[in-house]
Design a protein around this nucleic acid. Structure first.
Length: 105
DNA sequence: AGCCTGACCTAGG
DNA sequence: TCCTAGGCCAGGC
């Protein structure tokens, strides 16, 4: 469960799709370690490479991490720019935009 | 050197 | 069905 592993998986999420902390944790063989994924995401902005942190939400499709962005609306706006509709911090058609076909290293 | 705390999730009562 | 507790593990105090 290293930050690089998490970031690499997050980078696999295509534009216009989202994934969950739990799916990432599961991919890293830590099905119960989703909390750590969120914790690691805290320093995603320190990473040299681009990490599309806005494409990671909780398992309900709720933008639980929006408060950690530069502005309160940054996450929602980035998602909207990729065609994902967000209403009241909730992703619409969540099942359709959900993506978890992670490639295991 | 402990204790506390997370961008969470699941199971059990 | 709602609510509680426990697991994950590194970093801050």
């Amino acid at each position: 469960m290293l930050p690089e592993e998490v970031f690499q998986l997050v980078r696999q999420i295509p534009e216009g799709r989202v994934s969950t902390y739990g799916a990432i944790a599961k991919t890293l063989d830590k099905p119960r370690g989703s909390r750590l994924v969120g914790w690691i995401m805290n320093k995603a902005h320190v990473c040299e490479q681009y990490v599309p942190a806005h494409r990671v939400v909780n398992r309900n499709g709720l933008l639980s991490g929006k408060i950690h962005f530069e502005t309160p609306t940054a996450m929602e706006e980035k998602l909207a720019a990729e065609g994902i509709i967000v209403i009241d911090d909730q992703i619409q058609n969540f099942e359709k935009v959900l993506w978890s076909d992670f490639k295991v290293e």
